[in-house]
Amino acid sequence: MNPSIDIASALDRGNSDVVLIVDDVPDNLSVLHDALDESGYTVLIATSGEAALKRALQALPDVVLLDAMMPGMDGFEVARRLKAQAETAHIPIIFMTGLTETEHLVAALECGAVDYVTKPIKPKEVLARMGVHLAGARERRQTRNALDAFGYATITVRASDGALLWQTPLARELLLRYCGTQAPETPQEVVAWLQQCLSRLDQPGEPPRLTLERGAARLGFRLHQQIGDVDAQGDWLIVMREVSDTAVIEAIGLSFKLTPKEAEVLYWVVKGKTNKDIGDILGSSPMTVKKHLERVFVKLGVETRTAAAGMAMGRIRLLQPQFEI
């Protein structure tokens, strides 16, 4: 079992945001810990880069306050590794740095930080900066959870390299079932579709949608919005929804008194599939499909595929108006 599930679920996120402070200087930790604790945050601490990566994966904090300069693994490398892992890539990172040169501040933002504060640390400034980013993160989390509850799964994909940065539990299940992939790998067909969408952003109309079929079920993908830097390719929020025609097949069977297998065969005839196609889908030979179809013809009182499909389509439109061929 993944230890991050146990620790993350044990934290009281309903009443308190979780903050991970990463700093190797005890005085800095003490000042920030006390200020955040008094403000109602749940505070976790790490004193090295290695400990920060482990703690972040275990607890999945809502925000990370990260010291830039630490012995061993510095904050820049910690940020890069957090952003490279699908489980932690969504967590906002605020750098704490005494380096005020522009190149260092730019480096902090380039490796994934959303903001920075300069040392010596002023707790009120840190709280103000955190409040801005936590509000956005909290709103996105609530939106994603609500979408999941209504069957709309979401993922975030980084356009530059196609990495899957974030996914809801429902999205994880659907991608594994339809594509056999797990984060941070994004299915190749999804990456190719995203690049096609991005190449057409300057064209009028809605970006094209992607549909993956799995038997009588299909998984649709819709490009929702860009997250982060709008001047670059950026990260993109994609909404997925699974639609199943199982109810349609059952309705066909009941309407024409067909067996489950005969109803499936007629369903795929309506979809325009050949006997060979249907055999491949159902795991049967074309000859077996032909025999099922002959019995369907008898029960419907027709002699051709076209007539059977037309009769079935007419009945489906009455019973399942939302059905799409």
Rank of each mutant, 00 (worst) to 15 (best):
P260Y: 03
A79T: 02
G112Q: 05
V157M: 07
T88R: 01
R55Y: 14
I7G: 01
E173F: 14
G14F: 11
Q142N: 11
V117I: 12
E213H: 14
A46S: 15
A309G: 14
V191S: 06
T246G: 12
M130C: 08
R305N: 04
V265W: 09
L254K: 15
A51E: 13
V64F: 10
C111Y: 03
E38G: 01
M69R: 10
N28L: 08
M311W: 10
L210D: 00
M70Y: 11
A8W: 09
T259H: 04
I281A: 04
W268T: 01
D67R: 10
A307H: 11
L65W: 13
K83P: 07
E213R: 15
Q195S: 02
L44K: 04
L170Q: 03
V190F: 04
R172G: 09
T274C: 06
W166N: 06
E38K: 11
V78K: 03
E262V: 11
K299A: 13
G151N: 04
C179V: 06
A68L: 13
M69H: 08
G180P: 09
A153H: 10
C111A: 02
A56V: 15
K273N: 03
S285D: 01
G253R: 06
D6N: 07
G72K: 06
R241Q: 09
R144D: 09
A86F: 07
R140N: 09
R200S: 05
L176Q: 08
G314F: 14
R13P: 13
A216H: 12
R80M: 15
M240A: 00
G14T: 14
T288H: 12
Y267K: 01
L66T: 11
Y116G: 00
I252P: 06
E242D: 01
N15A: 14
I21E: 00
R55P: 15
A159R: 00
L66F: 10
A79H: 02
F150V: 15
R177D: 05
K276T: 14
L282N: 08
T118N: 10
E87S: 11
I121K: 06
A308D: 04
Q226P: 08
A35V: 13
L170R: 10
Q196Y: 12
S255E: 13
R13K: 05
I252H: 07
A153T: 09
T88A: 03
P207G: 02
G98R: 15
R209F: 06
I94L: 08
G234R: 03
R315I: 15
L105S: 00
A137R: 07
E303L: 11
P286Q: 06
I93M: 07
V132I: 14
V157N: 02
K299D: 05
P204Y: 11
Q142S: 11
E324L: 15
W166C: 05
M311I: 15
F297H: 13
E294V: 14
K299C: 08
S160M: 06
R144P: 10
I21R: 07
A192L: 09
S255K: 14
C179D: 08
N2S: 13
K290A: 15
C111E: 12
V269Q: 07
V117A: 06
A86K: 10
V230T: 10
L57R: 10
I249M: 08
A159Y: 00
Q322E: 12
A146C: 02
I278W: 12
I21H: 03
E262D: 07
Q58T: 08
A251M: 05
G283E: 02
V302P: 05
A146D: 01
W193N: 00
E250K: 05
